[in-house]
Nucleic acid binder design. Structure first.
Lengths: 259, 259
DNA sequence: CAGTGAGATTTGTCTGGACAAGTTTTGACA
DNA sequence: TGTCAAAACTTGTCCAGACAAATCTCACTG
């Protein structure tokens, strides 16, 4: 196949327990992902075959395939019929790199950063926002304005604004104190689920106020990541706007063959 | 469920043939996607249930679910256990919006645009490129430099550079004349398959030469989309660099709950 | 009319299986 | 040693089924 390619040895005869809670395929995905990150399955080499994984973890082929599919979507492995599943990347985080592909990654991102809230006020959404749809300008939304910082280093990452729909204004205290994502507050306290996040990335001159907040020069460039959190009726529950300094921002993702 | 929600009526008693070639699930996905685009399944309403689709198209539930999963990944529908599959978007193209999620979408994009090649020469890749990995600077790559234009309006969209690995330099004529993506030339004429595209988006000041090419002012901002096309051994087959005027560029995608 | 619980409905998870398609390995032969 | 075909291996497609979990509907009660 790949010249000197050697298949990573597996303990095929030992049944591995799958730790954690939630669907089996996700837990297997987590296990395999951890093994990739730790170098147990080195980049460039093959994962165990589906059959071997079925045996090792005593799971059906469907479950194994679903776990592998998720690793594929994440860009960690590439699968080839007749060949096997090759590790093409391990999750090596770059400086500040965004690569959101799913809601759960947004969830994780919120925990890795801190929203330093500076002001909270009622505000009508800008017209440009309303034109995106699902946003009623007639009622004032709750606007949180501040700086999103790296949780470890406290370095400013972005000028962050979050507009929360007025029906959740009563949750202001919870928004202020949450360590996780705002949408999590809505889901926990208001019983509204986020079904979809529409994300848009644009670039342009950085606003003077943003430059001042982030310690950037007056002629800096900003990359704006705008996210609308939609519920199942496509109603917008909240909007987040993050302006990042362009010189510290890159957005990466892997494109895959479909399927 | 959704208040006055009405399920779209289906002809459950008529078996529909699935047109096209390729896997059944993809063809069903194409059929359903066309129905969504045409308004047959309006945004906000429900698709037929899995069971109804199985009956209508005489397919297994697995096949139907796979087709629906793909629609979900595309952001066209949202699925809810116990509820059904709701159309949340139809494919309404915005101005110039990039939203590449897979290789096949890159394929389509190449057909919707035209690469106006200005110069072709041998060049060593920039160090910054080589540092991304998989790129051998010791040998000169074939550099195509030009403008990517909208195929219909001929409007300039981006300053485009494509670096092709030296082993494909013999295909220069094919690259010049292809209507499709460069990677398609490699796949057809050199038997090398693209397994992965690593994409990175950054923003910054636009280079003077790019500004001149695109008719932009000297202080314009550029959004750079850099793509490395990797084969299954993670060797870089080609690199494309597109510098877009920031004021005409947005990158959109939908983030989903995993699964 | 509003609230509650049971039953029906719908999607999600997971098992087993079969066959197809693509890749790799092996063995035979020149 | 190189080439080619067959066999073995591995993933892809697709079927059938069962049970769980979430949602919706309907009937009953206060």
């Amino acid at each position: 196949m790949l010249g000197t390619q050697i298949k990573v040895p597996t303990k095929g005869s030992e049944i591995q327990e799958i730790a954690g809670v939630g669907p089996l395929y996700r837990r297997l995905h987590d296990t395999l992902r951890a093994r990739i990150s730790s170098g147990h399955y080195p980049v460039g080499l093959l994962l165990p075959t589906e059959a071997a994984l079925c045996e090792e973890f005593n799971l059906s082929r469907y479950t194994v395939r679903e776990a592998l599919r998720q690793l594929t979507v994440l860009g960690l492995i590439a699968r080839r019929q007749g060949s096997g599943s090759q590790v093409v990347s391990d999750v090596t985080p770059v400086v500040f790199t965004q690569s959101m592909r799913s809601l759960s990654e947004l969830f994780q991102y919120a925990f890795e950063t801190r929203f330093d809230i500076r002001t909270v006020r009622r505000a009508a959404p800008a017209k440009v926002l309303a034109d995106l749809g699902g946003i009623d300008r007639a009622i004032p939304w709750l606007l949180f304005d501040g700086v999103r910082r790296d949780r470890l280093s406290d370095r400013p990452l972005a000028h962050a604004r979050v507009l929360v729909h007025a029906e959740f204004a009563r949750l202001e205290a919870e928004f202020r104190s949450t360590e996780g994502p705002f949408y999590g507050v809505i889901e926990r306290h208001a019983g509204r689920k986020v079904a979809d996040v529409a994300q848009s990335i644009t670039a342009g001159p950085m606003a003077p106020r943003t430059a001042k907040l982030l310690g950037e020069s007056a002629d800096a460039t900003a990359v704006q990541v705008l996210r609308r959190y939609l519920d199942r009726d496509a109603a917008v529950l909240l909007v987040s706007i993050n302006d990042h300094p362009a010189n510290q921002f890159r957005y990466e993702m892997h494109l895959r063959r479909e399927g």
